[in-house]
Write a protein that binds this DNA or RNA. Structure first.
Lengths: 229, 229
DNA sequence: CAGAAATTTGACCAGTTGGAAAAAACGTTA
DNA sequence: TAACGTTTTTTCCAACTGGTCAAATTTCTG
């Protein structure tokens, strides 16, 4: 499956770096280019995920990356370009677990594993999650199209898988779309609303253990619900 | 219970309007003052909930409110002040359903009613929800303190209620904090990720009916889980 | 209706923003 | 080490930002 493409503006192929040498075929990337681009993307992820696209400034990113603004602009000539790179990268990471849901598998291990994976993403890539959340809050101006095509197709497909499980009587008959939404919501909550979760749990329970607790709770919730049998 | 207070800067008591008449006791609010402030707050909610604090500009808000920037600044001398007003207002609305959870009630109707109320908030006040989400993504700089005190206290209290239900054997023994988180997450998802939900559901299922579907799904999920008995 | 108070407008300002341009410094390799 | 391509810095700019201020206009009250 090809990686998700975010609609790139006229980015000259997105292969950032040296200012378009006129009509000469572009050289391979330098070591420095690769390293600095990495540093910049890392810093930009920090800033964009906190402030959103409009709220973030190139100066902030440059400072976080430990370089001057013009220097940063040497590697990524547009703010927009950095943002889109991060967004595309994020979408790939983000969708991987859903893609892995297997139609031949049994629902219990499949769902359990999907929950676990999504929760791990919130733990290991919280900034990516917040970047995406920021984009959603703004109405997804850059990814709406891909949500309506690629994502919808993928979810349609997995909804079919879930319906197969229902037909086989392996899980209760319910709405597969809202099931997927609720898994997304509950797991991403631990990245997007991390401050709140930590504030409410307090110092003693707000440590890294909270992800273990969350995993246990969510597994029980999704499999058994709250009512005793 | 007193309304939540967001830490106000030196806002002269937050009673916006006419430029502080020196040492004269402030007059009552004019009709125009009340009306325009309402228009401004409404427009600001639109803009702030989409762009976040930094991303929003006074010009945008003024235009959405149909007035000039200096005119807007006549009613709210600081951008920060508008934002804080909206945030405080939001927190009150947002916490009301949680406050209503009753210790004497039976868990099934109580939880069902809490879910329904929270989902109604996402349907009826989606911008407020997104405003709050934006603030969380930024690390809650303006409300962290109140999350750690007021909100934590409230949740601690309600967690006790839920534990009471467990002691009585009325619901399964589980983590009450993560239960509350999961209710927040699943319901707010329909406001904060509205674009995505609609994109995935598509034109036919993305209408207002999605809230009905979500309510039915969530009720079943929380009460019974996915596995057949 | 006159006068005072409230509201609106237009001109303005200092600081920030995304980005351009050119020159200077650096690294590499023949 | 000279020459060339790469990287970095310096300087600069026009547009935008939050906000001020005084003058003009409108609304209210006696």
């Amino acid at each position: 499956m090809p990686p998700i493409k975010v609609k790139m503006l006229e980015t000259e192929g997105g292969k950032g770096g040296a200012k378009a040498a006129p009509s000469k075929r572009p050289r391979a990337q330098t070591r420095i280019q690769r390293e600095k681009q990495e540093v910049i993307l890392e810093a930009a992820l920090d800033v964009f995920s906190r402030e959103g696209f409009r709220g973030a400034t190139i100066d902030q990113i440059a400072e976080a990356a430990g370089m001057s603004k013009p220097n940063l602009l040497y590697y990524f000539p547009r703010k927009e370009e950095i943002y889109q790179r991060l967004l595309a990268e994020m979408l790939d990471i983000w969708l991987a677990p859903l893609r892995e849901i297997d139609s031949v598998g049994d629902p219990v291990p499949e769902l359990r594993s999907y929950l676990r994976r999504k929760l791990e993403m919130s733990r290991d890539y919280p900034r990516q999650s917040r970047l995406f959340a920021n984009e959603m809050l703004q109405g997804a101006p850059r990814v709406l199209e891909m949500l309506e095509t690629d994502l919808k197709a993928l979810v349609d497909d997995k909804a079919k898988v879930i319906e197969g499980w229902m037909d086989a009587g392996k899980i209760v008959r319910t709405d597969p779309y809202h099931l997927i939404f609720s898994i997304w919501a509950t797991t991403q909550h631990y990245a997007d609303f991390d401050v709140q979760v930590r504030a409410v749990l307090g110092k003693d329970r707000g440590g890294e253990g909270r992800f273990e607790d969350a995993a246990r709770f969510l597994e029980n919730l999704f499999l058994h619900g709250l009512l005793p049998k």
